[in-house]
């Protein structure tokens, strides 16, 4: 892979940006017919690359798919990085969306606008401390104070700086709080789902009961009197539970998996061959 440094590195970045701007300007001026042809061609070439990377047998020694001396496996890494760069640019669009919506909330004093202020405060504080913490690593200059970037090895497990406090102490705990709500929601949803209102619901309830009992010691104790060997062992609750999981549940899951796999394959082919375009952009592209 290329490694550029110093002036060449800066020149490459400026060149790439200028090239991208030029390309966008040309595309903006191009007719719909040209745009459409270009979209079809690029989609096909992009798909063809991954298609060949998948179908061409890899070299047994290097494990790389090679086409006429060109390693597709190595090229896939470059293409993946390019996709990440494009994704990085679109992240700014996401931030713009958030700022626009919350800015409008504050400006127009919409109900709950104070929460939008909380968004701006959190966004600002996290951005400042995240950049300040790693500024020296990325751009050089003076080291950040210990309360911004704690490099004390004694605190390696949990650095005592503001960024760690905000991320590990606040964001992660807020995530865990939302996750824990799930425990209550499972109960309320299960209550509604297991109300016996039809034959299917009754079957669901009985099977769920068998599965739950098969997983807990209390359930297993209920059928402990049945010998674990011999013709009747299949009637023990844990055996019934295993039977439901492996002989009924697993094949059904695999059958659903077959359908989903084929559906995804068909969808991928429609997109690759530009047969799906009207679904998203009926006129413009």
């Amino acid at each position: 892979m290329w490694t550029l440094t110093g002036f060449k590195f800066i020149l490459a970045i400026v060149g790439a940006v200028a090239g991208a701007v030029l390309l966008l300007a040309i595309l903006h001026q191009a007719s719909h017919q040209v745009k459409r042809t270009l979209t079809i061609a690029l989609t096909f070439i992009g798909g063809l690359f991954y298609f060949l990377e998948f179908f061409i047998p890899p070299d047994p020694k290097t494990e790389e798919a090679v086409l006429f001396g060109w390693s597709l496996t190595q090229a896939a890494e470059v293409v993946g990085n390019a996709t990440l760069v494009i994704g990085g640019f679109t992240f700014l669009l996401g931030v713009f969306s958030l700022v626009h919506i919350h800015g409008n909330n504050v400006r127009r004093r919409r109900p709950g606008w104070s929460y939008s202020l909380a968004f701006f405060a959190a966004f600002l504080v996290m951005t400042v401390f995240a950049f300040w913490k790693d500024w020296q690593t990325w751009f050089g200059g003076p080291a950040a104070p210990a309360w911004v970037n704690d490099q004390n090895l004694a605190h390696a497990a949990m650095p005592q700086d503001v960024y760690t406090l905000l991320f590990e102490g606040l964001v992660r705990n807020l995530d865990a709080t939302m996750f824990s709500i799930l425990a209550f929601y499972i109960v309320s949803a299960a209550y509604r789902a297991f109300r016996i209102r039809s034959g299917e619901a009754a079957v669901l309830m009985v099977v769920a009961l068998v599965l739950m009992m098969g997983q807990v010691p209390l359930g297993m104790a209920l059928t402990n009197w049945i010998p674990s060997d011999g013709p009747w062992s299949g009637l023990r609750i844990e055996s019934l539970s295993q039977y439901v999981l492996t002989a009924i549940n697993a094949p059904v899951q695999r059958a659903i998996g077959f359908g989903l796999g084929l559906g995804a394959l068909a969808m991928a082919m429609r997109i690759w061959l530009s047969l799906e375009r009207g679904t998203y952009f009926g006129q413009e592209v």
Binding site: L93, S97, F281
Partner: peptide, 13 residues
């Protein structure tokens, strides 16, 4: 965010 950009354009269209 990448999907946001596509969805925004598609809905606008």
């Amino acid at each position: 965010p990448t999907l946001y950009a596509v969805a925004d354009e598609a809905v606008h269209e």
